[in-house]
Design a binder for these strands. Structure first.
Length: 696
DNA sequence: CTAGGGTTAG
């Protein structure tokens, strides 16, 4: 008996003694705490003590509120539908539930019914909720109707309603409307500014965001700032990569003690990451007292953006160790980090995990899978992922279009583009970069001049560079040069290098000289240009010129990057350097190369000696070629993988012509698909042919 | 008994 004496609503026999007020309070408390279990106990008590709530509107509303808040919207709806008479609060409770659980469009319908069927007028709560839905779904017309009603009814004088309106206008991209409401009474508070700023940031309207921020600083005392204000300020700093202001915001946050807010913490990590301040970011991250999935994902994403792929994967192990459950964004970041490093082994195990936890159908995850798999050289597999996606966005289409392009599969790339249009997906800037690199000249110009205009995409440097590539590929070098000289575009290294590469392949020595002069004038210390020049001179057997370029490189202390190739066998990556004897199985590998070389010679392979070798003894030349890193890597992969398995080799430089020719023969003699990715693109060798059609 | 604004992906 004594046991129950401390519990206020139990009598000395342990029986529940609750009056109506208690019940309402308890239901409210359990909704606020989202404690469904406790709330259900009260519901049960009402039932067993024979208190039917159907006609007791306040109790019924409290129950609807409870189930709404706790995510059991269907239960809430059942209780709502079974009420003989509902009031505005009943409608408000059910609408809030739908809003919070992502059923915004349902709310609008409910509001219509409330007005037309129950003949009730929206109050400030209803209006704020409906306006939220309008913001979420960008329902501008409905939102403006709400504005009219708020104005007529005077509800606009409630701060909540005003702020909801401001948010609606900025989410619907009506900046003028947002400012109009912001400047009308009642006086704007920090929340009003938070709302506009947040909407503008979501809409990517940075100039207006900056203007609003200045106005806010002038209008609101710093003491009024809350967590959301800080998040918005940090977002602005991040977008402008404004580290100075970001640091200022950071110190203000510390002063106010807002760094314990989860959202603020994640935004700080994000800000430092977007400003490229990896070390400061890590320091901030390490001292945060509260972290959740988003905080972890934010830092992993920052590592990804700054190309610290390995660091991202390593830190994930710690996240896993701390038992923070990854979400779909986390997996997207990790898979994209694998894409950055082209590691299929770890990428595949993440793929398996994604399937296991049932996250494969998220668009971000599907996109990351396509990215990872096609970066590892397996476009066909990436295409399977693409075809099986439930929902595709513009990124999915872009990834598969440029994936096919990089693999030299122009036809597939264009097919996908036309299917994209048939699927009513608007192409964007990036779509056309992928597409243009997969075209012939006439098609290229057609897409540039007609398609891009049709879809309102302004052509940029990348697109024009693609055109240079197309002209170059078809040998129309003079046209390419004229195009570059006559158009007012500010060309960069990539563009000129594209033309130089075309000169190299088509052996246009004179133009090549002009282009390399331009390049060396722009970038006097560009090693890539020097190497291409030297190769070009060598091709035309102008050894004196080769020597001159070498001398220039020596004078400027320009070193050729050592040639590296690597291949992944199971989960290990094996790296090979040219002339490498370091590998434990070095002897076996060299023997294998030798054997392959003699086999392909029977098929017609002729070693192609290049520039550096003109002063070397004839017998030694073959040895030099034999030890090119990609040959070593290919030989090793052939030794270590089962027959008919495709092999994948990656290289840090451009593939040399001799290796390219040899690999074509090797693919034929070994009946293997050999995928080599060099700095520029993929080469898919199959049955003696390469997907690049010998132009790269 | 009902109410606004937030961090991560390409």
């Amino acid at each position: 008996m004594k046991y129950f004496s401390n519990v206020p609503f139990l009598n000395s026999d342990g029986k529940i003694m609750l009056n109506a007020i208690d019940i309402r309070k308890l239901l409210k408390t359990s909704s606020e705490a989202k404690n469904l279990k406790f709330g259900k106990t009260i519901h049960a008590h009402l039932i067993i003590s024979n208190q039917i709530t159907r006609d007791r509107v306040i109790e019924r509303n409290s129950l609807i509120n409870l189930y709404s808040k706790c995510g059991e919207t269907s239960t809430a709806r059942y209780l709502f539908d079974k009420m003989p008479k509902r009031n505005v609060v009943s409608w408000g409770s059910i609408m809030a539930g739908y809003l919070q659980h992502g059923y915004s469009s349902e709310v609008i319908e409910l509001c219509r019914n409330m007005i037309n069927v129950d003949k009730l007028c929206p109050n400030k709560y209803i209006l704020a909720t409906v306006l939220s839905c309008c913001s979420n779904c960008r329902l501008f017309d409905e939102g403006r109707q709400c504005h009219g009603y708020a104005f007529k009814s005077g509800l606009i004088f409630h701060q909540y309603v005003k702020n909801a309106l401001v948010y609606m206008y900025s989410m619907c991209s009506d900046v003028e409307g947002a400012f109009w409401v912001l400047n009308s009474p009642p006086k704007s508070d920090i929340c009003s500014y938070n709302s506009v700023l947040n909407g503008l940031l979501d809409q990517d309207d940075m100039m207006e965001a900056l203007y609003t921020l200045r106005k806010m600083v002038a209008d609101c005392e710093f003491e009024e700032w809350d967590g959301i204000t800080c998040v918005n300020v940090l977002r602005v700093c991040a977008r402008f990569k404004d580290l100075r202001s970001g640091k200022q915001a950071h110190s203000r946050i510390l002063k106010r003690g807002l760094d314990s807010d989860l959202f603020v913490g994640s935004s700080m990590v994000d800000m430092y990451g977007k400003c490229g301040e990896i070390l400061s970011m890590r320091k901030v991250f390490d001292v945060l007292q509260t972290k959740n999935v988003v905080t972890w994902t934010a830092i992993l994403a920052a590592y990804l953006r700054n190309e610290c792929f390995e660091e991202a994967l390593k830190l994930f192990l710690e996240m896993d160790h701390e038992n923070v459950e990854p979400n779909e964004y986390t997996f997207a970041v990790l898979l994209n980090s694998c894409a950055g490093m082209s590691v299929l082994g770890y990428g595949n195990s993440l793929h398996a995990r994604v399937e296991k936890v049932g996250m494969k159908d998220y668009t971000v995850v599907g996109n990351a899978l396509i990215h990872m798999i096609s970066k590892c050289g397996l476009v066909e597999d990436a295409d399977m992922i693409f075809k099986n996606m439930l929902n595709r966005d513009v990124v999915s289409w872009n990834l598969i279009i440029s994936g096919f392009s990089y693999h030299g599969l122009g036809g597939e790339s264009r097919d996908v583009f036309h299917r994209m249009l048939a699927a009513k997906q608007q192409p964007n800037y990036i779509t056309f970069v992928g597409l243009l690199s997969a075209c012939g000249v006439d098609e290229g110009f057609y897409y540039l001049n007609h398609m891009m205009r049709e879809f309102g995409v302004e052509p940029g440097l990348e697109h024009y560079t693609c055109i240079i590539g197309l002209l170059g590929r078809s040998g129309r070098l003079d046209e390419a040069e004229n195009f570059m000289k006559s158009s007012p575009i500010k060309w960069d290294v990539v563009a000129w290098r594209t033309l130089l590469n075309a000169c190299h392949i088509h052996r246009d020595y004179k133009l090549g000289k002009r282009v390399s002069d331009i390049l060396l004038q722009m970038y006097p210390n560009d090693v890539g240009t020097c190497i291409l020049m030297s190769n070009m001179h060598a091709k035309s057997k102008r050894w004196d010129k080769v020597v001159a370029v070498r001398k220039l490189m020596r004078e400027r202390n320009l070193k050729k990057e050592p040639g590296l190739s690597w291949t992944e066998i199971r989960n290990d990556t094996h790296v090979f350097v040219s002339d490498d004897n370091e590998h434990v199985e070095s002897d076996l590998i060299h023997e294998k190369v030798k054997k392959l070389m003699s086999e392909i010679k029977l098929l017609g392979y002729v070693p192609d000696f290049i520039s550096e070798l003109h002063d070397v003894e004839e017998e030694q030349k073959e040895d030099y070629l034999r030890y090119h890193s990609e040959k070593l890597a290919i030989a090793y992969a052939l030794m270590k993988t089962p027959p008919r398995a495709p092999i994948r080799v990656f290289k840090n430089l451009r593939m040399c012509e001799d290796c390219h020719s040899a690999t074509k023969f090797i693919s034929k003699v070994t009946k293997r698909t050999i995928i080599v990715r060099d700095v520029n693109r993929f080469h898919s060798f199959r049955e003696g042919r390469c997907s690049c059609a010998d132009y790269w």
